[in-house]
């Protein structure tokens, strides 16, 4: 037969190393995958949601922008509609404020209190916020309105995650 004979001992060694190697790989692979998982999933783009608002139509006056998305609420998935108050700053920066009052969660609106024009107003307990979303001292809310991350794509406004004031 061939010149290079494989002894019984060598044959067993090769097989055991081979099988052992597969087993080790089978155990290690998921561990490695778990370990580097955050790196792999971090670049998903932050879940921006498209609105129907054209960026070019935004002005310095806060506008109501509705957007809807699918939300899993406990047991069932529903289509949720949210609102943001959006305006453009003088330098072109877009500000999108959450309408949820930081007091007890009512929905605030722009410029609806005749006694205090050009402020966000909460009808429940008469909380007020200035245009940049900062709560007016002496009214019930104790912190400024949350802010959406914004992005422009193909002239359309996209809204991202909700951040505390001053972080988006």
């Amino acid at each position: 037969m061939s010149k290079h004979n494989v002894s019984r001992r060598q044959f067993l060694n090769y097989t055991l190393t081979g099988v052992g190697g597969f087993m080790a790989a089978g155990m290690l692979m998921p561990m490695v995958r778990f370990a580097i998982d955050p790196v792999l999933s971090a670049d998903k783009g932050g879940d921006y949601i498209a609105t129907k608002q054209k960026v070019s139509e935004l002005t310095a006056e806060p506008t109501r922008v509705d957007f809807s998305f699918k939300q899993v609420d406990g047991w069932y998935e529903s289509e949720e509609t949210n609102t943001a108050w959006v305006y453009k700053m003088d330098d072109g920066k877009i500000i999108a404020l959450s309408p949820i009052c930081k007091h007890l969660g009512c929905t605030v609106a722009w410029n609806t209190d005749k006694a205090n024009p050009n402020q966000f107003f909460c009808p429940c307990h008469y909380g007020r916020y200035t245009k940049d979303g900062v709560n007016v001292k002496g009214t019930p809310p104790i912190s400024p309105l949350d802010v959406y991350e914004t992005k422009e794509k193909d002239g359309i406004l996209y809204l991202g995650r909700l951040k505390p004031h001053g972080e988006a």
Binding site: C101, H103, L104, G105, C106, T107, C122, P123, C124, H125
Partner: peptide
């Protein structure tokens, strides 16, 4: 539910 959403706090 919509009314509740608008006036949650009161």
């Amino acid at each position: 539910l919509e009314i509740e959403k608008q006036m949650k706090g009161r």
